[in-house]
Amino acid sequence: LYSAASIAELIGGEAEYSPRSDYPDRLRSRSIDPAARAESVSWILKVQEYNGFLPLTAYLAVNYMDRFLSLRHLPEGQGWAMQLLAVACLSLAAKMEETLVPSLLDLQVECSRYVFEPRTICRMEFLILTALNWRLRSVTPFTFIDFFACKHISNAMVQNANSDIQ
């Protein structure tokens, strides 16, 4: 799968799938609420564990959330908006990666403060998809692990083949 991709393409790709470069500054200056973001990340991790999702699914959900936050403003002082964003990002990531995806209501079992209707989540998913320009196949640390693992295996195979010949 990664045979055609070069490491340079992956590194270039990673930047394209990252939040805007001023995003860390905006978190530090609190123009984006870092506490609300941290709460959403820990909610995503909790649901990932509860449903036995892949680590990649949680990573992608946070990646979508950060990219969305760096591009768009959420209504201020509305806790539900950040929670809705987290639910929709996790739902999208699960649909991209998981074989079995729980219903949107089951996905929110671990969610205490707000429960959103599927149609509301669907609209939020749509917003995220358009904001991210439908680019969901992010280059992640997992991509790099697969890339190097593949390299290593194929190198080992070449070495084995060589030693067989000798």
Partner: peptide, 8 residues
């Protein structure tokens, strides 16, 4: 988009 249970 039919606003079904699975969202998008």
């Amino acid at each position: 988009l039919d606003d079904g249970k699975e969202g998008f």
